[in-house]
Design a protein around this nucleic acid. Structure first.
Lengths: 120, 120
DNA sequence: GTATTATATATGAAAAGTAATATATAATGC
DNA sequence: GCATTATATATTACTTTTCATATATAATAC
């Protein structure tokens, strides 16, 4: 459970950075969390998150291009699902952190980073 | 170890997105990984990653603003260190995934997402 | 006090990401 | 075939990020 300081490979760092960056959007986190429940159509996702259809498709396309989600097509429906275990790991990680925060075991100064104007 | 599907709160999603996005840069992942070893000065980080000094400071400033790193000043030296446990969790997560990939237990199509031109 | 070292800040250009509007495509129901 | 439904793609304006160059600041060594 505790990290052994085995260096992360350069190759994996590239990939990980790409994935973390892509998941660094609230709606995309919500989408993958929703998909953890099982495959969903674009319409289901759109309604669940209250997004515009093209925006939903755009997020899914970006995530498909980066190997975060995959899909199967059935008629006019596209059923999207999570493409790999890394994503599930990240979701697990977020859940664990949320629990620690909820239980008060960890503290986190949300105010410090939210709704903050970008720098550099 | 297996995720209980307790919804992640909207508030935390905002924060998590911010953090994931910020860590979504190869050099920044390398920096936090280096910091896991203990606090480091800007110069140490710069030399370790072979970056320009202002670029190093810029990365550190962005991460400071988003509560990923913190620092103490001693003379002209700034000693940076990790600011919270969430970051360590993410590093753990990446290590675990790397191990699974190395061991062949998991497979991941790196080619699919690397050096790829952006889409929308 | 002058030079040097360590680091921060300012600025600007180029690249990437975001979100909206409009349009295309393709399957389905009638 | 025609309308409808589900989704993708194109385009564009806007915002943010990234990286480099230049400069400022402040402590230290001499």
């Amino acid at each position: 459970m505790v990290r052994e300081s085995s260096k992360i490979s350069t190759e994996f760092i590239q990939t990980a950075a790409r994935i973390l960056k892509t998941l660094g959007h609230p709606d995309r986190i919500k989408i993958v969390e929703f998909l953890e429940d099982g495959e969903k159509t674009v319409g289901q996702i759109q309604r669940e998150l209250n997004l515009l259809q093209p925006v939903t498709s755009q997020h899914l396309k970006v995530m498909y291009d980066r190997n975060i989600v995959t899909f199967r097509q059935k008629g006019t429906r596209y059923f999207y699902s999570l493409a790999n275990n890394f994503i599930i790991k990240i979701l697990d990680c977020m859940s664990e952190v949320q629990e620690k925060l909820d239980s008060g075991e960890w503290d986190f100064d949300f105010s410090k980073i939210e709704n903050q104007k970008e720098a550099v």
